[in-house]
Design a protein around this nucleic acid. Structure first.
Lengths: 233, 233
DNA sequence: TTATGACCAAAAATATATTTACGGTCATAT
DNA sequence: ATATGACCGTAAATATATTTTTGGTCATAA
């Protein structure tokens, strides 16, 4: 049966509270009691909605993935050049940069993810979340949005390197020496377009179609995962 | 007075032994006694050549920087396209990839650098070693080896991001999923050339001249640093 | 002179005991 | 039916004592 609106609302409140605290203090240093307090309910109530602290965290991650993907697609749709490689990547990077949780997942942030990373059963611990897969580049290539002569595996990996650099570079250098994110993302997107887009400018419409396809696939998988995660009452 | 050849030779032996052990076990888990044994001399003899374990490590790092820089220049000289951005960067990446110590310094590897990193007085702890500086891009731009319309600060940073990705990506993903280094470096250099080199192909000779200039500057600074590090007997 | 390795103080690692904090439950209240 | 928070066992953090390792020295040997 579908979930009543007020329950949904309360779960959202809990997840909001959890998001704030987890991002700020990390998984280990955020207690369930803390989350309850932040959400303005009792500790017991949390367990009426989530099986465990870990399940709560995973529900949060799934929600974040959904909004990450949705945000990405929305940006791509709104951007005339959203179907070109540069346009697509610009929007991925913006979405990634705007989501501390996705960024943490992508860079396997030990501080934020804490014990969740150490748990071998953690479903979302896998290292591929938020990353560019070469199958996508392949499709974009077939759609004429990426130069034919390039190796999709290499291209995808380079894009992942840049995404990693965007979120992790502050670990090896003084943040004051890092250019403003906005300008950096523009620079990267510009680089991508110059180097990877076909000379004719690429077929942005076809590129968007591919992205939509990928998006609905991903959305389905996420929905299934959410469904599966809810078998507990 | 200049150092006798046999002393120089022995110091090289010590540094060789130290390099092997430090790279393998890291700074913390390599003892001075270990180094002495590996070098085939007594522990006391080490202290005839180096003030402390840390001074030894720094001497090793300086030697490595010198050979790193020399290797880089040699590669650039040998490469007809060595003066273009792509050519230059290809050779930097090869040099970086070939030197575990430089890579560790660049990525601030806590395992390898260990306590050396924690010491606030460590001269070479600074985060800029091995990295691309925007002044260099500036010069290359003036020499006509890089497109005029690009922002040197952004370009330099993107290059650093890619170098970081090259040496650090294995921390967030399964090494089996990382493309072969050789192919990856080629892909990156190719990307650089496509995106950053002027349409006319760039002035490789002028680029090389700039690199030589930078090299001799750096060499001088390193020599001074080595000199300064030797005021102890 | 130059090199050695036993030696030392100090730090790091290990072991043990003790306290605190936390995830999760459930009798009770609303 | 839903929500609460006192409660419980355990795991993590802290404190303490004990052992081992290590960077560095120096009297002695070559």
């Amino acid at each position: 049966m579908p979930k009543p609106a007020d329950v949904e609302q309360r779960e959202a409140r809990i997840l909001d509270a959890a998001a704030t605290l987890f991002v700020h203090y990390g998984f280990d240093k955020t207690s369930v009691a803390d989350i309850a307090r932040e959400a303005g309910i009792s500790k017991g109530a949390i367990y009426l909605h989530f099986e465990s602290k870990e399940a709560l965290f995973e529900a949060l991650l799934l929600r974040e993935m959904q909004s990450y993907a949705a945000e990405w697609l929305a940006r791509v749709e709104a951007d005339p050049a959203g179907g070109t490689l540069g346009g697509m990547y610009r929007n991925v990077l913006h979405a990634l940069n705007a989501s501390p949780l996705m960024a943490a997942l992508f860079k396997q942030d030990r501080r934020l993810l804490g014990a969740y990373l150490r748990n071998p059963q953690a479903a979302l611990r896998s290292r591929t979340h938020g990353s560019m897969r070469h199958e996508l580049i392949d499709l974009l290539q077939q759609a004429g949005a990426v130069r034919q002569e390039l190796d999709p595996v290499i291209v995808a990996h380079i894009m992942n390197m840049l995404a990693y650099g965007l979120v992790a570079m502050d670990e090896i250098m003084d943040p004051a020496d890092i250019p403003p994110t906005e300008a950096l993302i523009e620079g990267i997107a510009d680089l991508m377009d110059r180097a990877l887009t076909p000379p004719d400018g690429g077929d942005s419409a076809a590129g968007k179609a591919v992205l939509q396809q990928i998006y609905s696939q991903a959305r389905q998988q996420l929905a299934d995962a959410v469904q599966k995660g809810q078998n507990h009452d």
